[in-house]
């Protein structure tokens, strides 16, 4: 595997993404919006409802999970774009004709979707932490973030969720011919995450527990490995050129 080759491909995909204004805007806007909206919500709850420290803390514990969901959702869109785009532009054949292996091309697609999403998720998370600390420090008495839970989300939860979204997008878009379709079918793969969120909201699973966050991350890692194997099997030149529609 020559990563520099994958990098050339990823850079090309990033350049295309920059030209697609709506796509680039969406990738930046959602995490940043969340990073600003969630702290404001907390501020509202503190000021208007004069919530107790315990309520504020439990809210704060669950909010980072939003970012895990977003980390899986956004790359779904980009990677569907990446493959469906190449399919509709019929650029896969000349690409496969270059001296590049299937694995290198697939890795390029992974990097090109993973990087922009992770960068913008990190930006959003950082703004979220910064603003939250600023708005809650007087109530809680100390800076709530950074903490261990956030570290798990940063280093494990978000990146794994992101790769999970990328692989799902790549896999689904090999079967579907339009970006919307790939995105919608791919969104089904996020049902377990939504379910977890609802379980968290109704108090069955604590999403602020570090142990639970670690278990969720491990589950995502397993899903990532399975999805990678699946996309590796789908993404071989013979089937791309003779079976993909």
């Amino acid at each position: 595997m020559r990563l520099w080759k994958s990098w050339i491909l990823a850079k090309k995909d990033l350049a295309i993404m920059r030209k697609r204004r709506s796509l680039a805007t969406a990738i930046l806007a959602f995490p940043l919006g969340l990073g600003i909206a969630l702290p404001l919500l907390i501020e509202y709850i503190i000021v208007r409802k004069s919530a107790t420290v315990t309520i504020v803390s439990s809210l704060l514990g669950a909010f980072p999970f939003f970012f895990i969901i977003l980390s899986a959702l956004l790359p779904l869109y980009i990677s569907s774009y990446g493959i469906v785009g190449e399919k509709t532009e019929k650029s896969l054949e000349p690409l496969l004709a270059t001296p590049t292996s299937d694995g290198e091309i697939l890795m390029g697609k992974y990097i090109g979707s993973f990087l922009p999403v992770l960068v913008s998720i990190y930006l959003g998370l950082t703004i979220f932490m910064f603003l939250t600390d600023l708005l809650t420090v007087s109530k809680i008495g100390h800076f709530y973030y950074p903490n261990l839970g956030m570290a798990i989300v940063y280093l494990l939860g978000a990146p794994f969720a992101c790769i999970y979204g990328v692989s799902t997008g790549l896999f689904v878009s090999s079967k579907v011919n339009n970006i919307q379709g790939a995105y919608q079918i791919g969104a089904f793969s996020l049902i377990p995450l939504y379910a977890l969120y609802i379980l968290g909201e109704i108090g069955i699973v604590s999403l602020s527990s570090n142990t639970n966050l670690l278990i969720i991350s491990a589950g995502l890692l397993v899903a990532v490995i399975l999805m990678y194997m699946l996309s590796r099997a789908t993404f071989n030149r013979e089937s791309i050129l003779t079976k993909w529609k």
């Binding site: 491909l9 350049a15 532009e89 019929k90 650029s91 054949e93 000349p94 690409l95 004709a97």
Partner: peptide, 30 residues
């Protein structure tokens, strides 16, 4: 693949990229 060039039946270029950027990308892939 490194020593051959292909003009495929469908042009398969990246529409959003310039002619120059398309050629530069492929040259590097080669």
């Amino acid at each position: 693949r490194k020593m051959i060039g292909l003009v495929p039946d469908n042009v398969g270029l990246y529409d959003t990229l310039s002619a120059y950027a398309n050629l530069e990308f492929y040259g590097r892939m080669y």
